[in-house]
């Protein structure tokens, strides 16, 4: 009876007696979700919805999402864990799959190539985060001065972030060209070094920095944007109070600006850290992991092991190790972030 009252639309419900209508609406206060869904659904579909319980409706809504999530996220994850304990090779599907215990993990952890890749990743992640945070916060701090045209400059600064990373990798390859590249020309203009005397991508010592520079160029605006949000969230009257309390600009920065913007900075670091730990496309386009394997980050290494050498079990073990590492680090970091936010 309740359900039917809920389904009734005003057009069906030509009620002459206002008071009676009022009573009716009072009776069906607090309709269940199923009733409300039925009331706002076209008539034929509503008839089917009406019989369901609230719980069933809830499942009907989140079911597809949960299903997809299980199918393309959770199942592959578990399957990868399983495969990491086998000698499975994806290019030989007919071969018998053998359970080999933790031997893949032993191999991964004793492989010097893996450790080299980890080192390359660490170098890349640490330096990009340091540079992007310092530059991004600095830019945000300058833009926050609200000078004439600051909105225009904000837009200009955001452009690199809007480009596709494959495109960025490709054109920086040209910028880094020793003979015709703009980068080498600019460096030589300011330092007087012969532009063709160094090759950012070809040199073993310079290539790790080449990828750091490009990623910093591309993603500093992103860090700036988050820091800017943090700086804008600090109300002006706090600075005014500090000014009256005779705090120097230096002290205002250290005791107000930085602590209050810190949660935002930490968030930016988290996002950039996760992103760069799995960096792939930009570096593949730019250096392809070379020269040699000096810029071969773990994600590139993983892709080679899995889909070029087809060592599926082995690469699964590597993937599981990386997943646990990132997941663990991110969790610790989020805890620290929450503590900072709660201050």
């Amino acid at each position: 009876m309740f359900v039917r009252a809920g389904v009734r639309t005003p057009t069906h419900n030509n009620c002459d007696n206002r008071a009676a209508c009022g009573v009716m609406t009072e009776v069906r206060t607090d309709p269940t979700i199923a009733e409300r869904v039925a009331a706002s659904t076209p008539e034929p579909l509503a008839r089917r919805v009406r019989g369901l319980s609230d719980r069933a409706i809830a499942w009907a809504f989140i079911g597809p999402t949960v299903g997809l999530l299980l199918a393309i996220n959770i199942f592959p994850l578990l399957w990868t864990v399983y495969l990491s304990f086998t000698n499975y090779r994806a290019n030989r599907p007919n071969e018998e799959i053998l359970w080999i215990g933790t031997r893949n993990y032993e191999r991964v952890l004793t492989d010097p190539d893996i450790w080299a890749a980890m080192q390359a990743t660490a170098h890349f992640v640490v330096w990009t985060i340091v540079l992007q945070t310092v530059l991004g916060f600095g830019l945000a701090w300058l833009i926050d001065r609200k000078f004439r045209g600051s909105a225009f400059w904000t837009t200009i600064i955001l452009i690199p972030m809007m480009l596709s990373s494959a495109v960025v990798g490709n054109f920086w390859k040209f910028l880094y060209q020793p003979q015709i590249g703009l980068f080498n020309y600019v460096v030589s203009f300011f330092t007087g070094i012969d532009p063709s005397s160094f090759d950012m991508i070809g040199s073993v010592t310079l290539a790790p920095w080449a990828i750091v520079i490009v990623d910093t160029w591309m993603w500093t605006p992103y860090v700036m944007l988050i820091c800017l949000a943090g700086l804008r969230s600090i109300p002006d009257y706090i600075y005014e109070a500090a000014e009256v309390d005779r705090a120097s600009p230096w002290r205002q920065f250290w005791s107000i600006t930085l602590p209050m913007a810190l949660p935002f900075i930490m968030l930016a670091v988290l996002f950039r850290g996760i992103e760069n730990f799995k960096m792939f496309d930009l570096v593949v386009q730019l250096t392809g992991g070379g020269p040699g394997s000096i810029t071969e980050l773990t994600s590139i290494n993983l892709k080679r092991e899995a889909f070029e050498k087809w060592r599926t079990g082995y690469s699964s073990a590597l993937a599981v190790i990386l997943f646990v590492a990132v997941f663990g680090l991110a969790n610790i970091y989020v805890k620290a972030l929450n503590r900072v936010k709660q201050r």
């Binding site: 005014e240 109070a241 009256v244 005779r246 005791s255």
Partner: peptide, 21 residues
């Protein structure tokens, strides 16, 4: 003179406390 040099104390309507301290 700047606010610091005038040596006044200001109580703001929005309290204006330093939230991280």
């Amino acid at each position: 003179l700047t606010p610091a040099d005038r040596d006044v104390a200001f109580v703001f309507q929005q309290y204006s406390l330093y939230p991280t301290m």
